[in-house]
Design a protein around this nucleic acid. Structure first.
Ligand code: FES
Ligand code: FES
Lengths: 175, 175
DNA sequence: AACAATCAGGACCGCATGGGTCCTGTTAAG
DNA sequence: CTTAACAGGACCCATGCGGTCCTGATTGTT
């Protein structure tokens, strides 16, 4: 259903957690790194998965790592600078809706007579635009101390329409 | 990689083919229906797949079907009225990027302490906007008489020459 | 110097999902 | 009555994702 991977979802969670750098691991004055077990504990995501996500994010230069004892991860950009497209690209690879985008030969069997050959690029670009226009800062629920939400959320119809007010909601997807 | 299903891709091809209604099956004056074998032949997509796509499109009321002999399919809207979002919804189901959108309970394991709970809706809406803003008419390559390519690659693996020649191969992969 | 903590980078497996085929009705034209 | 075509499944298989784990490399600590 056009769904992106759950890993990407986790990546967003992890990154936001990383932005709240003043965690329990902030020992070095200037570099409040966080360890993957720590993040896993804080977010509830299983540790191996967190580690995997962090590695991918490191490869994409979205986070920096400090090896060795007392090591960990830290952001290299502010949340405002990180777009959803960045995260998706880091985790899921380049954003390519169909196999027919770009000039991959042999990707599509019917490209000989295809009427929309290469036209998906249009859609692809639109998606990229939409994804690039949203930053992680907009994803984070503004000033919500999530310590409250520990108990299980209601089954359905959660009355948490609270955050609706403060978000600009750019929605500049149209062009 | 955030890819949508190949079926959706085929659906677009089929729909566009359907819009060029003046096919070989246009017997009835007012209702130029096309059969799925005919569309399969014209597009190069295997017949069973075409049939499957057509069925899904019929369920979504994007095309109308005429049963019985001399039956077939026809569009119910102009290409300009059909958005990519419509097609995706018809084939792949509702557009929901992550399992955490809407209030699906039990979808996400970490929703208890999640910092972005429900925030994916933002991204989701942006995607929907982007997908809704593009119609099939924009997807169709304007005035490309694909009648050239009719020689059927039915079997498979077209012997290496015809496919290579005429393809522009834009290779506009940005990043 | 030895140790421990932590990241790096894979290999690995199980499972869900999508892609594709096929079969059996049902409908309607000829 | 026969045939052409859709309807609606069931079905199998390959792909890829989600998740785990293992073996190094690196660096602070003791
Ligand atoms: S090239 Fe793949 S559908 Fe057109
Ligand atoms: S509820 Fe699923 S990641 Fe937040």
């Amino acid at each position: 259903m056009l769904r992106l991977s759950k890993l990407t979802d986790y990546a967003v969670v992890v990154l936001i957690r990383l932005s709240e750098g003043g965690g329990e691991c902030a020992r070095l004055g200037g570099e409040p790194v966080q360890t993957s077990p720590g993040i896993a504990l804080a977010t509830g995501v299983p540790e191996p998965t967190v580690a995997k996500v962090l590695k991918a994010l490191t490869s994409a230069n979205l986070v920096a790592s400090q090896r060795g004892a007392r090591g960990g991860y830290r952001l290299v950009q502010a949340l405002e600078q990180i777009t959803i497209a960045d995260v998706i690209t880091a985790i899921d690879g380049p954003i390519a809706l169909t196999a027919c985008v770009d000039g991959a030969p042999g990707a599509c069997d019917v490209q000989n007579m295809c009427a929309v050959k290469g036209r998906w690029d249009l859609v692809n670009d639109a998606i990229r635009q939409a994804l690039t226009s949203i930053t992680l800062a907009e994803m984070r629920v503004a000033s919500v101390p999530m310590a409250f939400r520990l108990p299980a959320p209601d089954h359905l119809a959660p009355p948490d329409r609270l955050a609706q007010g403060g978000v600009p909601l750019a929605a500049s997807a149209a062009e």
